[in-house]
């Protein structure tokens, strides 16, 4: 699992490509749990009080929004690229 973080999420974590040991994660949700365990400062920014992904936070697997797939239940492979980022603000 290769994580990429952007903007304030990278700042909160202290790095934009954190190494996370999540080789046995079967879903995006399990990979996210491993990321947040390793970097607890990130949790409040990306999860709401119920532990769900905040509506404005984007999570992409290999460039595709997981909300277009099976959400946090989307299956992952070890060499997938997962990206977590806040609302886009280009222009």
């Amino acid at each position: 699992m290769n994580w990429k973080l952007f903007a304030d999420l990278a700042e909160a974590t202290g790095e934009s490509e954190p190494e996370v040991d999540a080789a046995d994660a079967a879903t995006v949700g399990e990979a996210l749990d491993a990321l947040l365990d390793a970097h607890p400062a990130l949790a409040a920014r990306v999860l709401d009080d119920d532990g769900d992904l905040r509506g404005h936070i984007n999570l992409l697997r290999n460039g595709r929004d997981i909300r277009e797939g099976e959400g946090l239940a989307t299956p992952v492979d070890e060499d997938d690229e997962l990206a977590l980022f806040p609302p886009v603000s280009g222009g």
Partner: peptide, 9 residues
Amino acid sequence: LKDEVPIFK
């Protein structure tokens, strides 16, 4: 572009 492209300011 402003809605869809992952760029951060």
